[in-house]
Every structure is written in structure tokens, then in C-alpha cells.
Amino acid sequence: MTTKVLRLNVNGEDTLVPVGPMATLQEVLRDKLELTSVKVGCAQGGCGSCSVLIDGELRLACLTPAEAADGCTVTTLEGLNESNSIVPIQQSFIENYAAQCGFCTPGMLVATKALLERNPKPSRDEIIEALSGNLCRCTGYLPIIKAVEDAAAALSGKQSA
């Protein structure tokens, strides 16, 4: 079994990671780098619970061979926790009770962050579409959508202030 060594910048830190053949980025982030906010809901691109940013773009870690991310910048929720811009989104999720079991929540937050970077004032429909790849089986979509609406308002309010 050949092992390759990848160079990744994960949450701001350069890191070298040995990986086996066709290891997924999901496995590398969770098992090697212990970034457990990256959840494994389906491992086949169906649930969004492993949503991360690769070079700033929303991607699914389960569908990404780790080797295809060689040389890339990867951001997980742990990395976003360090930035101020995520705090209003987290606060809004808390205030809107937008999590129940919490398993989809990290993916929801990363997808929300990606949406608001691209579109700071999304319509309700745009929010629904932007989160359409992130499943919540506790069926808490309404508070989640409301949380994103409130977060967008809070963030854009801050920007205009």
C-alpha cells in the first residue's frame, strides 16, 4: 500500500499528512487531524454534514479524495470558530433554536458562511437553495432558515455601521 504525503493548509496551519490510497478528505480531517466537526452522515455526498471550504469554496469532504486537495487551503468549522465573522451566525443559530441533535449543524454553519460571503443579503429562497445540500433529519429547517436570515441581517447591519 503506497502512502503519499500531502501538504495542506488546514484552518490556517500548514500541515503534512500521510494518506493511503483514495483516502477521502473527510477521513484525513476527522481521523488524522481530529477535526471532528466534520461529520460522516452518508459518505456519498447526500447529506452535507461534512461541508468544508476548500480554497474558500463550499465542498463536501466525503467526495473529495484527499490527494485532490493536495496543496489546498481547507477550512472546517473549527477554523471558522477562530474568526469573528462566524460568531453572529452561531449566535443566531442559538437564538433561533436552530439545532436539535446538532449533527447537521457544523455543515449548516459552513454552508451559511459560504452563502453569506458570496451573497450578504440573500432572499429566503436563496437561503433555502443554498442550504439544499444540507439535510436536517430532526426537520428543523424553519428555525435554520430564520437563523440565516437573522445572521445576514446582523452581519450586513454591522458592515453598514
Binding site: E34, T36, S37, K39, V40, T76, L77, E78, N81, I89, Q90, F93, I94, Y97, A99, Q100, G102, F103, T105, P106, L109
Partner: peptide, 22 residues
């Protein structure tokens, strides 16, 4: 409405599920 106690860790990805125990 009663706020879930683990909302704070949910939104930070710090809630420990069984397979998050290393």
C-alpha cells in the same frame, strides 16, 4: 421555550458524538 443546553457546543462543532471520542 427552553434553550437546549448543548446548543453552544452544537454551533461550534464541539458536541461529542460517540465516534468523536478518539
Amino acid at each position: 421555550s427552553v434553550r437546549l443546553r448543548d446548543l453552544d457546543t452544537h454551533v461550534r462543532g464541539q458536541t461529542t458524538y460517540y465516534e468523536d471520542v478518539r
